[in-house]
Structure formats: structure tokens, C-alpha cells
């Protein structure tokens, strides 16, 4: 059936359409640099989406939990074996992505007789010095992009671009509190856009679509207040000042509560 090239291209196109559909209801993930390292944030319904990979590596994911687990284990195995056989300094995000999981994801995507990975992955690496952070985003087809200040995962490129615009508009050198605030706004912007797109698809919310690009603080805060009541705000940092070699730390609910805007804190309690 797929022996003819155009049929294979068609099958891959169908697969792309199928995968795009799978992410429409996913929760966006935000990562950005702050004065002591990198903060990662998402809002989940219970299954965690932020993980420690190695001493200076953290992962955020979107998609099917079982696929995410499989790739997370691949990364963990690669990182730890490499760190043991060579040295922790040789375990870099760039190597893990380029020579590790990106080829695996690409192969699964193009083998049209097998199931693809329903995942988008954001891998962040804490640099030894401020300003040396690396952000890698891998798409479900194995393509990846590398950035240096912030990165996001969302259902579509358009939503990701809006979120990145908001993150880049904020000045650098943020405190952790400021970074958590901005990350939450970016998440709200992305999640609201995705939800409005879904409603538009079902012809129920065409009117509200005009509001999707609005980035004013009040409307984003209101959206967060509405949305997070039955969900969990997940936040983790790669903190350069943390003692010991492992720099990853998930923020406890109490610690996170101190950084959240007052109105959001009230909705959570």
C-alpha cells in the first residue's frame, strides 16, 4: 500500500494530522531562565509532567503519559550510563537530544506501520554560569530547536509563538517569584488559546476567539483563577545555588504558594 512514494507521503501527512489532534487538549509547558537558574512550570490533572533527568538536566513533556515515560527512561538510562562511564560534565542536553532521543522519535514517526510517539519534549540544561542555559524542544516528528532564554510546548506553533512573545517581552534577570509569575501568565495564554480553538472547532465559542491573543494581566489572572481550582500547578527549578551536584528541585506546594499571585493562591486554597 505504501510502496509508492506519494502514498507514503500521504500516510505521513495523515499521521501529522492525527498527532496534531492529540495535543489539542494538552497542558502547555513553560521554561525560562531566572537569576539562579531555570524555572519549569505547567498545570496538570494529576500525572506529573516535569521530571529530573540528570544533575543539570530537567524535562517537561506534553502528550501520552506512557510514551513520555518510555522516552524519559531512555533519557535517564543514557544520561546515567554516560555520566558514569565518562563524567557528569559530558552529559549535555544537546548530546542527549541529537544523538539520543530525537532519532528515535523521528524513526517512530516515519515508520507508518508502527505507532508514533505522542509526545513533545522540552529539555532544559543549567549552564555552569548565568546566561549559559540551554533549552531544547523536540517535536513529535523528531525535529528539534535549541534556544537560550526560554522555551515552551503547546498544541500548535501559533500558540507557542504567542507564548514566546510574552516571555521575551519581560526583562531578563528575574527573581524566582517574578519568573514563576511570568511562566504562569504564559501558561494561561497558551492554555486559553488552545481551549478557545477547541471551542471554535465545535462551533460553540467563535465569539471568544478574538480574545485569544490578549495578554493583559487581569484577563490572564482571571483565567488562571478559573482553571487551576481542580488542577495542580507543577513547578520545578534547576537551581545553580543548590548544594551538591544535583541541581533539580521540585517546589513544594508551600514554597510555590509563596511565589504565586495572591488571587491565584486564594483560588488554590
Amino acid at each position: 500500500m505504501y510502496e509508492e512514494p506519494y502514498k507514503w507521503v500521504e500516510a505521513v501527512g495523515n499521521r501529522r494530522q492525527y498527532l496534531d489532534e492529540q495535543f489539542k487538549q494538552g497542558s502547555p509547558v513553560v521554561a525560562l531562565a531566572y537569576e539562579a537558574g531555570i524555572v519549569l512550570l505547567t498545570v496538570s490533572k494529576g500525572t506529573p509532567k516535569l521530571y529530573e533527568i540528570y544533575d543539570r538536566l530537567a524535562l517537561g513533556g506534553m502528550g501520552h503519559p506512557a510514551d513520555l515515560e518510555k522516552l524519559r527512561f531512555s533519557l535517564l538510562e543514557m544520561a546515567h550510563v554516560e555520566g558514569f562511564n565518562r563524567s557528569p560534565s559530558d552529559v549535555t542536553g544537546s548530546r542527549m537530544v541529537k544523538y539520543g532521543i530525537a532519532p528515535v522519535i523521528k524513526q517512530a514517526f516515519e515508520e507508518v506501520f508502527k505507532a508514533p510517539f505522542i509526545v513533545k519534549i522540552l529539555l532544559t540544561e543549567l549552564g555552569a554560569k548565568a546566561g549559559k542555559e540551554t533549552f531544547l524542544v523536540i517535536n513529535y516528528d523528531g525535529t528539534f530547536e535549541e534556544g537560550s532564554h526560554c522555551a515552551v510546548l503547546a498544541a500548535t506553533k501559533a500558540v507557542e509563538q504567542d507564548m514566546m512573545k510574552l516571555l521575551r517581552a519581560e526583562p531578563g534577570g528575574r527573581s524566582l517569584e517574578q519568573a514563576v509569575g511570568v511562566a504562569l501568565q504564559a501558561w494561561a495564554l497558551g492554555d486559553r488559546s488552545q481551549r478557545q480553538a477547541l471551542e471554535a472547532d465545535t462551533d460553540h465559542g467563535r465569539e471568544s476567539q478574538a480574545d485569544s491573543a490578549s495578554t493583559d494581566l487581569a484577563s490572564l489572572s482571571a483565567y488562571v483563577r478559573e482553571t487551576v481550582k481542580e488542577k495542580t500547578i507543577e513547578c520545578a527549578v534547576l537551581d545553580r545555588t543548590q548544594p551538591g551536584s544535583a541541581k533539580y528541585r521540585a517546589l513544594s506546594p508551600d514554597e510555590l504558594g509563596r511565589f504565586l499571585p495572591k488571587d491565584v493562591r486564594a483560588s488554590l486554597s
Binding site: 533527568i53 535517564l76 546515567h80 558514569f84 544535583a246
Partner: peptide, 16 residues
Amino acid sequence: VRILEHSFKYYRRTQL
């Protein structure tokens, strides 16, 4: 020590 260091970290990171 190197094996133990990696073992404890690996356990924490895989088993959460």
C-alpha cells in the same frame, strides 16, 4: 562510591 552515587540518583529519578 561512584556506583552508589549514580545508583541512588538513578533510583530517585526513575521511581520519583
